[in-house]
Design a protein around this nucleic acid. Structure first.
Lengths: 190, 190
DNA sequence: TGGAGTATCTTTCCAGTGACAAGATCATAT
DNA sequence: ATATGATCTTGTCACTGGAAAGATACTCCA
C-alpha cells in the first residue's frame, strides 16, 4: 500500500460520504439519516456506502469517532490559550454548536456500536482532557464531572430550544453566565 | 363488561399503545422504535396505531407529552417534601432514570412535532417548576438554568455511560456530590 | 507487457417500514 | 332498529437497510 494510493472512481469516497452524512444529519437529524440519502448526496449507490462502513451503524460510528477527535482538538487548542477554567467550558459549547451533527451522534451510543475501536480510542483521549489528572481524589473528580455536566447540559438544552430567550441569543455568553454559578475547584483559575 | 374473547374495540387501545411504545423505546431506543413493532406488542395492526396518533411523529409526541407530565408530577412531589434545592435536582435525576424512554424522546424534539399542543402545555408547566418565579432577575434566571443544566447534563452523561465508574454506581448519590459544586442561589436552602 | 489478483463500485433482490385509501366491524344515540 | 360515527383491518405503494453477485478500474509481479 503506497502512501498516496488513489482510489479510482472517487478521489476519496469515504471522506465524501462522511461529509455527506454530517450534512444529512444537520438537515434531518441522526434518526432521519438514511444511508441511501447520504449516498445520493455523494453521487453514488447506497451499497458503496455500505462497502466503506459496513452498515448504517458503522457510518454513524465513523461520525462519532470524527466528532470525538474534533472535540479533543478543540479542547487542546482551548487549553493552550491559557484562558482558564471557564473558557474551556465555552470551547465545549462552541464545539457542540459548530458541529451539532457530530455532537448529536456522539452522545447517542445506541445509534452505533459503542465498542467500535475508532470510537473508543477517540473517546478516551477526550475523556482524559475533560477529567484532568488520573490521580485526583473523588472530590476533585466530582468537580470535574460537575464542570463537564453543566456545560454539556446547557448546550444540550440550548440545542433543543429549552433555554429561555430572555437570556439572549449568544450561547457562549449565556454559557459564561450559567457556568459562573459553579464553584471554582481549588488550584484552578476561573 | 362480559369476558368476550377479544373485543374488536380495545378497552383503551390508545393507552396500551403508548405503554407499548415506551417499552419498545426502552428496548431499542427512540430511533429504533417502529410503529409496526409497537402495534405488534399491543396485538393490533399498525394502522390502528396510526389511527390514534396520526403518524409515527404523533406517537412520539404523545410519549413526550406524557413524559413532561410525569416530570412535572415528580417535581411537584419533590418540592412538597421541602428538602431543599439539591433534592429537587435529585428528583430530576431519579425521573430521568426511572423513565428513560420518556426522557430520551422529550429532549429530541426533532423526533416529534415540537409545536404539538399537548406537548407544549405539559412542557410549559414543567418549565415553570424548573425556572422558578417569572419576575426573577437575569442573574437569578441564569442560576436556575445552571441548576437545571448540571443535573440534566449529569443524568444525560450517566445514561450514556460517560460517568467514571470510580464515582460509584448510585446515580442519585453521585448527583448530590456533583451538584454540590454549584453555588447555592440566594434565598434558597441547599 | 500482460495477466492475475484486489479494491472499489453497481446491479439486483429481499424483507421490513410508514403512510394512505378503502373496506369491515362495532357502539351508541335517537 | 337503524343510522351514524368511531374504531380497527386489508391492501397497496414508495422507501429503506442489507446481502449476493457481477462489473470495473487499479496494482503488482512474471
Amino acid at each position: 500500500m503506497s502512501p498516496s494510493r488513489r482510489p479510482y472512481h472517487h478521489a476519496d469516497l469515504r471522506a465524501a460520504l462522511l461529509a455527506a452524512a454530517v450534512a444529512t444529519i444537520e438537515d434531518n437529524g441522526a434518526a432521519g439519516m438514511s444511508v441511501r440519502e447520504v449516498a445520493r448526496r455523494a453521487g453514488v449507490t447506497h451499497t458503496a456506502a455500505t462497502y466503506h462502513f459496513g452498515d448504517r451503524a458503522g457510518l454513524l460510528a465513523a461520525v462519532a469517532a470524527e466528532g470525538y477527535a474534533l472535540l479533543a482538538e478543540a479542547l487542546v487548542a482551548a487549553s493552550q490559550e491559557q484562558r482558564g477554567f471557564l473558557e474551556m467550558g465555552v470551547a465545549y459549547v462552541r464545539f457542540a454548536i459548530a458541529h451539532r451533527a457530530h455532537f448529536e451522534v456522539m452522545y447517542q451510543p445506541r445509534l452505533y456500536d459503542p465498542d467500535d475501536r475508532a470510537v473508543q480510542a477517540a473517546k478516551q483521549e477526550t475523556a482524559a482532557l475533560l477529567y484532568g489528572s488520573r490521580n485526583a481524589t473523588n472530590e476533585q473528580l466530582a468537580a470535574g464531572v460537575a464542570a463537564w455536566a453543566i456545560v454539556h447540559g446547557f448546550v444540550t438544552l440550548w440545542l433543543n430550544d429549552n433555554i429561555p430567550s430572555r437570556l439572549g441569543d449568544d450561547p457562549e455568553d449565556i454559557a459564561r453566565a450559567v457556568a459562573s454559578n459553579l464553584r471554582v475547584p481549588r488550584g484552578r483559575r476561573a
